[in-house]
């Protein structure tokens, strides 16, 4: 019984939250890694693209709610998602046209593009705050739980409750669908393959008649889509606050780099690695330990390795350790 309780507590406080957080990071890191693979720079504006997209989703959600459109037990934001993606993709494409394309034509050094993306970051940051403000916004109006802690306790007779929030379930499910679709796209479609070819060898791709502007445009659209989905899921799961999204840049970059920049598979692995270590290190293990250890050994403190304020330190430490042993990341950063 105690052992079962321990497993339930572990699921409840570590596995489920880390899985959904990992899925959010993975989606964010996929966008960063795609841009890196095709456009050859790390996009500092990615966090703010997530924020902008989520803000759009929130606005559309509010519009829907105000005219009485709901999505049954699911959050209305899911209905708004396609609109948010469309608006964000349009903005990102416009940015590419107005800003990035010039440098691409110049064959500018990638590091110049990094600085350019800082400028874009400032602007997007300002625009997002301008539109929706700096406050914290909750926009999840769906059913709260797939599995409710009290009902779980009643049904199983265990002391520990298992809570599985619908946003968590939704996050994991959406992430699986999106990742599957992305991999199918990259590996099976002509456009997807042309993106990989372009990332592999730009000149040869040109010689093969692949249109770089098209490749770049498709990449931006996909990255925008991933950013909005990741941002919306994160916002549904926790809450929306523009500054928090900017701060997600670090764990997202860390995920992409740990996995191997340019490798989509790596981005996913990196996202989950970072999420699990962050949650694992900042979770107070006392509860689980009390269940599995004999009374004499039970910890008297919280058995928390680090306070949650240091979760960035954890992602960073993982990054350094992985790079020390595998300098190109878990999955050798290469193909798109």
């Amino acid at each position: 019984m105690d052992f079962l309780n321990a497993i339930v507590a572990l699921l409840n406080f570590v596995v489920i939250p880390a899985t959904s957080y990992g899925a959010q990071l993975a989606l964010g890191a996929l966008g960063v890694t795609l841009i890196y693979g095709i456009l050859r720079f790390s996009n500092f504006a990615h966090g703010d693209t997530m924020a902008f997209g989520t803000a759009m989703v929130i606005l559309v959600t509010w519009a829907f709610q105000s005219v009485g459109i709901h999505f049954g037990p699911l959050p209305t934001a899911l209905l708004a998602l396609p609109f948010g993606i469309a608006i964000t993709a349009a903005l990102v494409l416009a940015t590419d046209k107005a800003v990035y394309r010039f440098y691409r034509r110049q064959k500018a050094a990638p590091v110049i593009l990094v600085i350019v993306s800082m400028g874009v970051m400032f602007i997007m940051n300002g625009v997002t705050r301008f539109i929706i403000g700096v406050g914290e916004i909750r926009f999840d109006d769906g059913g709260r739980f797939i599995v409710n802690a009290n009902e779980f306790k009643k049904a199983t007779g265990l002391a520990e409750g298992l809570a599985f929030r619908s946003t968590q379930g939704l996050t994991i499910l959406t992430a699986i669908i999106v990742v599957a679709a992305l991999f199918w796209f990259l590996n099976k479609t002509r456009t997807g393959k042309s993106m990989r070819a372009y990332s592999d060898n730009e000149d040869l791709a040109l010689l093969s008649g692949i249109n770089p502007e098209r490749v770049v445009a498709v990449t931006w659209i996909i990255a925008a889509g991933l950013a909005v989905i990741a941002g919306t899921l994160y916002g549904l799961d926790k809450s929306f606050k523009a500054f928090n999204y900017f701060q997600l840049l670090l764990p997202i970059f860390a995920s992409a780099i740990v996995g191997g920049l340019g490798s989509p598979l790596g981005a996913i692995a990196g996202g989950f690695l970072i999420a699990f270590t962050e949650v694992g290190f900042t979770y107070a293990w006392k509860k689980v330990a009390t269940y599995v250890l004999p009374d004499a050994l039970a910890p008297d403190g919280l058995a928390q390795l680090l306070s949650t304020d240091y979760k960035f330190a954890v992602s960073f430490a993982i990054l350094v350790i992985v790079l020390l042993f595998k300098p190109t990341g878990l999955f050798k950063g290469k193909a798109v």
Partner: peptide
């Protein structure tokens, strides 16, 4: 390496 990918193309764009 954490922000830029080396080895871009040299061909001018069409």
């Amino acid at each position: 390496r954490s922000i830029t990918k080396s080895g871009g193309g040299e061909l001018e764009y069409p």
